[in-house]
C-alpha cells in the first residue's frame, strides 16, 4: 500500500477538514485532551472505556465495535483519519484495531496532535456530533494479531521486536518513565527479541521517517524482513506504531501486533525471560 494511502499530512488534513465522508478521530488515553480541544469536526475515542472489554482482558467484540462506530457517526465507506497524542501511539493502536475489524480506508495524520499543536493550527472545544450510522464490522482478522502462545513459539525462530525503551527492554525500568515504576510483572524481555524502540521510527515532531530510513532501521538491527515478525511493547500501543511502520508503510505483510505485550508476558508463570541489553538465547 502506498504511503499516501495510509498517511496524510497536515496540509491534506486542512484541505479535507470539511469533507463529510472523511472523519477525523482523536484517540488519547487522556480524554481530557479531546474535551479540552480537538481538530474541528473530529470525534473522540476513549481507548480505556470504549476500546477495552469491560469484563475480559481483551479488545471489544464485533457487536460492540459496530455499536461504537455507529454511535460515533462513522460509516463503512468513510475515510477515517486517526490522530492523537503520544506521537500517535493510541491513534496507531486504533488504526490496527479498525483494520482488525475490516475498515477499508483508515489513515494516520502524520505527527498527530503534537505536530498540529506545535504548528499552531486551529483546535476547537465544541464537541462534534455526527448522525448515527449502521456500521457493519467483519470478524477479527487474526492475521494481524499475535497471542502469548504465538510469542512463545516464536522464540528463536521468528523475529520478535521489542519496541519499548532500552531501559524497559533491559529490565532497568518496568514502565515508561512518565508513569510510576510500580507494576506486578517481572522486568526484562522475551528471549531473542531485538530492541528497536518505536521512537527510532519517528522524528522529533512525531512524523514518520522516510521509507528508506525505516527500512535501514530494521535491517540494520538484523531483522530479516522475509521472516514473520511479532512486535510488542507494554500494552500494545507503541507496538501498533511499529506494526504500522512495517506493514502499512513498508508493505511487509507478515507482521503482527502482540497486544497482550509485556503486561501479559511479564506476568506469565514458567516462561523464559531475558534481562540486560542483549537479546539472550532461545
Amino acid at each position: 500500500m502506498a504511503r499516501n494511502e495510509v498517511l496524510v499530512d497536515t496540509e491534506w488534513a486542512l484541505a479535507h477538514i470539511d469533507d463529510p465522508k472523511i472523519v477525523f478521530v482523536e484517540v488519547d488515553e487522556d480524554t481530557a485532551a479531546y474535551e479540552a480541544n480537538h481538530i474541528r469536526g473530529a470525534v473522540g475515542l476513549n481507548w480505556r472505556t470504549e476500546l477495552q472489554d469491560g469484563v475480559r482482558r481483551d479488545i471489544i467484540r464485533k457487536e460492540s465495535i459496530e455499536a461504537l462506530l455507529s454511535a460515533k457517526g462513522i460509516a463503512n465507506d468513510d475515510t477515517v483519519v486517526l490522530y492523537g497524542g503520544n506521537n500517535n501511539w493510541f491513534a496507531a493502536y486504533a488504526y490496527w484495531y479498525l483494520k482488525l475489524y475490516g475498515h477499508q480506508d483508515v489513515r494516520l495524520l502524520d505527527g498527530g496532535r503534537k505536530k498540529w499543536e506545535l504548528d499552531g493550527l486551529e483546535l476547537v472545544s465544541e464537541p462534534t456530533v455526527r448522525p448515527a450510522t449502521t456500521y457493519v464490522a467483519t470478524e477479527q482478522d487474526r492475521s494481524l494479531r499475535s497471542f502469548r502462545d504465538d510469542v512463545l513459539n516464536a522464540i528463536g525462530t521468528k523475529n520478535l521486536v521489542d519496541v519499548r525503551s532500552p531501559d524497559e527492554y533491559a529490565g532497568r525500568l518496568l514502565a515508561p518513565a512518565h508513569l510510576p515504576q510500580e507494576t506486578s510483572q517481572v522486568a526484562g524481555h522475551v528471549p531473542t527479541a531485538v530492541n528497536i524502540p518505536w521512537s527510532k521510527a519517528a522524528n522529533d515532531d512525531g512524523t514518520f521517517k522516510s521509507d528508506d530510513e525505516l527500512k535501514s532501521l530494521y535491517e540494520g538491527a538484523g531483522v530479516d524482513l522475509d521472516k514473520d515478525t511479532i512486535a510488542y511493547c507494554r500494552i500494545g500501543e507503541r507496538s501498533s506504531h511499529t506494526w504500522f511502520v512495517l506493514r502499512e508503510l513498508l508493505g511487509i505483510q507478515n507482521v503482527t501486533n502482540y497486544d497482550g505485550s509485556w503486561t501479559e508476558y511479564g506476568s506469565l508463570v514458567d516462561v523464559p525471560v531475558a534481562v540486560g541489553d542483549a537479546p539472550g538465547q532461545a
Binding site: 488519547d28 488515553e29 487522556d30 481530557a32 485532551a33 481507548w47 480505556r48 477495552q52 482482558r57 497524542g85 503520544n86 501511539w89 493510541f90 514502565a175 515508561p176 512518565h178 508513569l179 510510576p180 507494576t183 511493547c233 507494554r234 500494552i235 500501543e237 507503541r238 503486561t263
Partner: peptide
Amino acid sequence: MSSCGAVVGGVS
C-alpha cells in the same frame, strides 16, 4: 490496566 499513555503534566 495502566497504560503507556501520557497525561497532561505527568502523573500526579
